[in-house]
């Protein structure tokens, strides 16, 4: 058996590594690390605090969070609904599974120009794109969840005289809880990826917008500041979801 690492040692080493990286970033000479392209930690910090002061950061982070949230709700609802429908009978399975698998194979980023055409460059477009990306997680999760329910349960519910709606509410959805939790855990980071991707392509607000506009005026500090905030927000959301989703999915 491998000896377990001393947690204090690990944390100390990690902090040390981080400090060295930040120190190198701050103090390496310009000949090695061009601050015009790389910025410096203190400049990034300065950019961040000025954005915090004038509300830029809060406003744009809120915009991205709304995109992620609404995208998850929309994509999740449609994914669960169509997944239930696909699992409902052989006919609906044949009808839905093929088209969904085809769309799944499409590199989703190619949809962004199309959505811009339809919906403009605003938050709407980012929400729809995010919803499309996360939709597949929920669809396949529910579909597989239904396929995994032992037929003895279906038979029993039929003998108890359950309606299709009762079958769905009392058997299928609870049985798919683990799958839904898993797809939520996968979908949250992907929702950030897709929201910010859509924002980077075309937007008027959001953290992706900050990255894009900073890059276009060669403001390396702004890019790093926006990226760091994005990392923190995305990580915080993922960790929260992981924690609640796994508790929620447990049967015992």
């Amino acid at each position: 058996m491998q000896p377990s690492a001393n947690p204090i040692l690990v944390v100390t080493l990690r902090l040390l590594l981080l400090l060295i990286a930040i120190g190198l970033w701050q103090f390496l000479p310009s000949s090695v690390l061009d601050e015009f392209l790389w910025s410096r930690p203190l400049d990034v910090l300065a950019q961040m605090s000025s954005w915090i002061m004038d509300g830029t950061l809060l406003w744009n982070a809120a915009d991205t969070l709304v995109t992620v949230g609404l995208g998850l709700v929309l994509g999740g609802a449609v994914g669960v609904a169509l997944g239930l429908l696909a699992g409902f009978s052989i006919v609906t399975e044949r009808l839905l599974l093929g088209p969904v698998q085809m769309l799944f194979a499409l590199p989703k980023i190619t949809l962004v120009p199309l959505f811009i055409l339809w919906l403009g460059v605003g938050t709407q477009q980012h929400i729809v794109f995010t919803a499309v990306v996360v939709f597949f997680f929920f669809f396949f999760a529910i579909f597989n969840g239904i396929r995994g329910i032992a037929s003895v349960h279906h038979n029993n519910f039929e003998l108890f005289g359950a309606s299709p709606w009762q079958m769905c509410r009392l058997l299928v959805l609870p049985a798919c809880r683990g799958w839904i939790a898993l797809s939520l855990r996968l979908a949250v980071p992907y929702a950030f990826v897709s929201a910010v991707s859509a924002e980077v392509v075309a937007s008027t607000s959001g953290l992706g917008y900050l990255v894009k506009t900073s890059a276009s005026v060669m403001n390396a500090s702004g890019m790093f500041a926006a990226m760091i905030v994005l990392l923190i927000v995305s990580l915080a959301c993922s960790l929260t979801i992981n924690r609640y989703a796994s508790n929620w999915a447990r049967f015992d």
Partner: peptide
């Protein structure tokens, strides 16, 4: 009543 366990685990 079948041989398999048909109780809902949740």
């Amino acid at each position: 009543l079948t041989q398999e366990d048909a109780l809902l685990p949740w």
